[in-house]
């Protein structure tokens, strides 16, 4: 018995079309992936298409944000961490924020849970989301969107209680990367799933890049593995190695050498421009970028299998 309509349309698109259809200059764009599964290839395609004036929302603003800044894609950055993991500095972000630089980035600073709550409010269409953070911190002084309200209920001590709230975020488009999806855009992910589902549900449109498109029955053999269902996805895009230099659990490892090298590349504007010219503007799409990495590099990042045990969903006799 199948209830699927015969006229259901597959959501598979190419990356160039997905970006040009759903990302426009001036948009608010969320790129998520918490160290794992960072949608780097999509960020590079935004650079190739010369999209500008974005408000970029990303909890951990790292290398791909530094690259998009250097390519002049971003005018406002909303984030809770601007750093190259434990591997050094992000030269372009620092230049655009620090007093000695042009200071042409509007930076909106949160803590991690403040960003999480913005996505939770956005996904649920709430006017705000309360959290027990921010008392005593200077963050609300530099970010007027972090506000304090009187709770309508008494606190634990029976007295009136004040609590901080953050506003919803509803990006024009959210972009995330995952291991696999079916042609309908049911996205399956494992390992660190981060804030991806909340980001997608908060957005008007969602582009999901994946390592591979798999047959429907692969997804349906393990529906709990689907963290984002088809109805929340606008386009699903096969982009192997689309998260490099970050990693994909079970597919390839993190390119720690690249993370370490970024400190020196981004510290020097000329080196950074040269890097973009070679790796982004010098490639027509991500498959050329992967070609340029070379077989030896891909082999260096490969991982040995560690299979999970299948679970039994049962079937009515």
């Amino acid at each position: 018995m199948s209830t699927l309509a015969a006229n259901r349309k597959p959501k598979v698109m190419g990356l160039r079309d997905a970006i040009s259809t759903y990302v426009h200059s001036g948009d608010t764009v969320s790129l998520e992936g918490f160290t794992h599964a960072i949608p780097t290839a999509a960020g590079h395609e935004i650079i190739r298409q010369g999209i500008t004036d974005l408000t970029l929302v990303r909890m951990t603003a790292d290398i791909v944000v530094d690259q998009m800044l250097a390519a002049n894609c971003i005018s406002t950055l909303v984030s809770s961490f601007v750093g190259n993991s434990s591997a050094g500095s992000l030269g372009e972000i620092r230049r655009r924020i620090e007093a000695s630089g042009p200071q042409n980035l509007n930076y909106v600073e949160y803590s991690h849970y403040g960003m999480v709550c913005r996505y939770l409010a956005g996904a649920q269409k709430l006017p705000f989301y309360p959290l027990r953070s921010y008392f005593g911190s200077d963050l609300p002084k530099v970010n007027p969107e972090i506000r304090k309200v009187l709770s309508p209920y008494p606190g634990p001590d029976g007295k009136p209680e004040e609590i901080y709230v953050v506003p919803p975020i509803n990006p024009d488009v959210a972009i995330v990367h995952a291991q696999r999806a079916d042609q309908w855009g049911n996205v399956q992910m494992w390992g660190l799933t981060g804030i991806q589902a909340e980001a997608v549900f908060s957005a008007k449109h969602a582009i999901v890049t994946v390592e591979e498109i798999v047959p429907d029955d692969v997804v349906r053999s393990d529906p709990n593995r689907t963290i984002i269902p088809s109805h929340a996805v606008s386009a699903v895009v096969p982009v192997p190695f689309g998260a490099h230099p970050s990693f994909i659990q079970g597919y390839y490892d993190r390119d720690n050498d690249f993370y370490r090298s970024w400190s020196a590349i981004s510290a020097d504007e000329a080196l950074l421009a040269e890097w973009l010219a070679t790796w982004v503007h010098g490639t027509t799409d991500h498959s050329e970028y992967v070609e340029l990495m070379g077989a030896a590099e891909r082999e260096r990042l490969s991982v040995a299998p560690a299979m999970s045990q299948p679970v039994n969903y049962g079937r009515r006799r």
């Binding site: 809770s80 620090e98 803590s111």
Partner: peptide
């Protein structure tokens, strides 16, 4: 000097 910021440190 711009530093990384809170991350989860605040929480």
């Amino acid at each position: 000097k711009r530093l990384p910021g809170s991350g989860g440190a605040h929480e």
